[in-house]
């Protein structure tokens, strides 16, 4: 793993999230590139790297997007910890599991944001806002996530060698396994 490259990708993700994504959003729905990057790192590494990256990227996103300091850091930390904790139990070598996991983690991320803002800052967001936002974003993440993971797979090698935990959205993994055994 190249740490300099990782930091560069992290900064690029935050800059793209706050400058490019608002321009490219489809019908008002935009993906969260920083969230997808944090999930990717947490799935690839069981070490504390995922936690530090979640915290650092969260703070960077808070400042870069004009949000409240600590808001994204808190939410991303929770999501990253859960992803690291559950990775062995839930992640299978297929696209469907990735899609489901991204959908569920987006629901959780949005719920945590809603909960913290309403509890700590008494923002008074109506509860109906959460499923509407979370579902549209979750679907977008489920579509984009696997492609992004596939593009980033060279950035961090999976620490326990199970390279297909974050697999390609392309050919089914059992075919690629057959290919590896064959060669």
């Amino acid at each position: 793993m190249n740490r300099v490259l990782l930091v560069l990708v992290a900064v690029l993700a935050v800059v793209a999230q706050t400058t490019l994504v608002p321009v490219l959003n489809v019908a008002g729905v935009a993906p969260d590139l920083v969230f997808l990057l944090v999930i990717f790192i947490a799935l690839r590494r069981q070490t504390t790297l995922g936690l530090w990256m979640a915290f650092g990227l969260g703070l960077l996103q808070d400042v870069a997007g004009g949000g409240l300091l600590g808001q994204n850091a808190l939410v991303l930390l929770g999501v990253a910890y859960l992803a690291m904790y559950l990775r062995r139990k839930f992640f299978q070598e297929n696209l469907v599991s990735q899609v489901l996991v991204l959908l569920l983690f987006t629901l959780l991320q949005q719920f945590l944001s809603f909960f913290w803002l309403n509890t700590l800052l008494e923002t008074g967001f109506p509860f109906s806002l959460w499923p509407r936002r979370a579902l549209t974003m979750g679907i977008m993440h489920a579509v984009l996530g696997p492609f992004l993971f596939w593009g980033l797979r060279g950035l961090i090698k999976d620490e326990d060698g199970a390279r297909n935990i974050v697999s390609s959205p392309g050919p089914p993994s059992h075919l690629s396994r057959l290919g590896r055994h064959g060669s």
Binding site: T47, T48, L51, W52, A54, F55, G58, L68, L69, G70, Q71, A73, L74, L77, G78, Y81, M84, W116, L120, L121
Partner: peptide
């Protein structure tokens, strides 16, 4: 328990930052 300790520490820092926004 390093993972849990770092997680708790970072959560506390984030909470303090968030509450201090007032």
């Amino acid at each position: 328990w390093r993972r849990e300790l770092i997680f708790s520490l970072l959560i506390i820092i984030s909470l303090v930052l968030l509450v201090s926004q007032r």
